[in-house]
Design a protein around this nucleic acid. Structure first.
Lengths: 332, 332
DNA sequence: CTGAAAGCGCTAACAG
DNA sequence: CTGTTAGCGCTTTCAG
């Protein structure tokens, strides 16, 4: 907790002025190579680390960005964060993480804090893909929404193309020869659930097909998956594949179907959504699933933010394609 | 991206000097109430937010802390982070999140960055509880290790008392009348695996018992749990309970035992470790498990850090007790 | 090629 | 009670 080394100390040791030392250390100006070297050695020797506050006070840039997760930090936020860190870290930027816990008060408080810290930009993320009210209007720094999207079309949002994911799932099931496909997903009022189901139905319709039974809406849980299996079996509809709204649902379904004597994928093929490692690998057999590439979304959002910071902001919603990861649950 | 409002603008609008405005806004000095009010209104009107960089340049405090996760951000980091945020957010401190991804180079880079940002303190965390080399020596700011611990006993570490968790698990199984208890856990060379197993064996020994079969070491996966079930069944040892090193192992075991016709908990009672929501709830029946209270660890670590920042650093390893969460897998 | 000086926005003495 | 002044540590003209 000793007083930190300042650039003037470095300058003194190197026998130059602070201005010269600054130039030497930042590679600016036109200096004699030996002077530059002398300063660098002095800095090294003293363990000099520039004071970011002082620098940013001067330059107006802080090389920091804030990341506000509106819903509590969760499973989805991590890959987003990692992706963003990836893109920002390379540019020497640090991230302030703020967990607003779904509380508007906290959210505004954090926003204020971030502005006082003069972050260069803000990434807003959340647990649901549904559009949300902008976090603020006329903010002095660029904002990019990741995963979640802003209701204001002028804002920049980077989101997964969930409909694309559904299409891939259905096409894959069709490709492995299934025709009597059922859909089991989360709550009907949940944006992701309805978007995914709708797209799946449309994809079937485009092939002249319909779901084997009306889409089953429930919860995002294994328990619901197990329950849904019972429903499917009791309808007598001869389902040969199920596309689930989440890996958890799929897993519950797999378990219950297996218990009821159905063999996966021979009797029923299964596709999940999220490609959540512990779920798809724990499932028996391992689960084919749709990956939203959250890390890529985080990375793209960060890149968009950097672009905006550098003066070329993007607008509107950028939907990124999903990827199907085939595993044993749909193996032919 | 307009130039931000400065305190001198506020002062001008309120018709006072900047010094007075500063005092008014920070509740310092002795001002006439009406003056204070006038300044506050002016600040409000202009949407003034103090520049943190300028302030910290003056005061030497930044009210920021860095959190370095040595291993990649994972499931364990989230609750730790939430707990830390909780304790720090109250004190108006912001967190820089840095993911070193298990790369010493990145780690040192981040450390340097954090120091240049003049953070008031640093929390180091990771995926394994095993002691690690200190992140640096003679650092100008206090450091607290959370979950992970530092090999230097002079450093402050806040860790889960995993042995305590094991004791609770075994005592619970004994309390529900089990005597032929087996232990199935992760890799033998993994610190958590061995600590947990050792403590469980010791607890049994204290009751004059031994594990029903020699402790089974394997991986931290459901697959291993399933495999272990096969081993247990084939030994012919009449096991009436299994304490697993993780919820995933327990879940695999539950699945395989059920499939083999054993009923849980009637024939075999099961206790997991981690109390990971999706695992314990997805398990059939729901899994009794040991909770390390990661959020509490994060909170405590942050509190220790705040104490250190305020001049009263703690030293050594602080082990926090675990908690057993009973569910159907051990119901009597 | 290098030094001197000004100033980023704020706080903290110290006068008045 | 309020204003003035002097920096915090750094970058950046502008002279020399």
């Amino acid at each position: 907790m000793d007083r930190a080394v300042t650039i003037s100390q470095v300058a003194a040791l190197a026998g130059v002025s602070t201005g010269t030392a600054s130039k030497a250390l930042n590679g600016r100006g036109a200096l004699r190579p030996e002077t530059r070297l002398r300063v660098q050695q002095a800095a090294e020797q003293l363990g000099f680390v520039a004071n970011a506050a002082a620098r940013s006070l001067q330059t107006g840039r802080t090389y920091t960005v804030g990341m506000i997760t509106t819903d509590s930090i969760g499973r989805f936020s991590i890959p987003l964060l990692i992706g963003a860190e990836d893109a920002l870290g390379a540019g020497q930027m640090s991230i302030f993480l703020c967990d607003a816990r779904d509380d508007p008060i906290r959210e505004q408080y954090y926003l204020r804090t971030l502005l006082s810290r003069k972050v260069d930009g803000i990434i807003v993320t959340g647990r649901r893909t549904q559009a949300r009210a902008p976090i603020g209007v006329g903010l002095p720094v660029p904002v990019v929404y990741a995963f979640i999207s802003s209701a204001d079309p002028a804002d920049c949002s980077v989101v997964p193309d969930e409909a694309d994911g559904s299409r891939r799932a259905i096409r894959h099931l069709l490709a492995v020869g299934r025709r009597r496909i059922a859909l089991v997903t989360g709550p009907e009022h949940h944006h992701s659930a309805s978007v995914r189901a709708r797209a799946a139905e449309d994809t079937l319709a485009a092939e002249g097909l319909r779901p084997a039974v009306p889409t089953l809406y429930g919860e995002w849980s294994e328990a619901w998956g197990r329950q849904a299996a019972g429903i499917l079996l009791s309808t007598g509809a001869d389902v040969d594949a199920v596309f689930c709204g989440s890996d958890q649902i799929a897993r519950g379904l797999a378990e219950a179907l297996t218990k009821a004597g159905r063999e996966i994928p021979r009797d029923v093929a299964l596709v999940g959504f999220d490609n959540w490692d512990v779920m798809v690998e724990g499932c028996q057999p391992p689960l084919t699933s749709i990956d939203m590439d959250l890390e890529g979304i985080g990375r793209t959002a960060a890149e968009q933010l950097l672009a905006a910071i550098n003066g070329t902001p993007a607008h509107g919603q950028h939907a990124r394609p999903c990827r199907l990861v085939p595993r044993a649950s749909t193996a032919v």
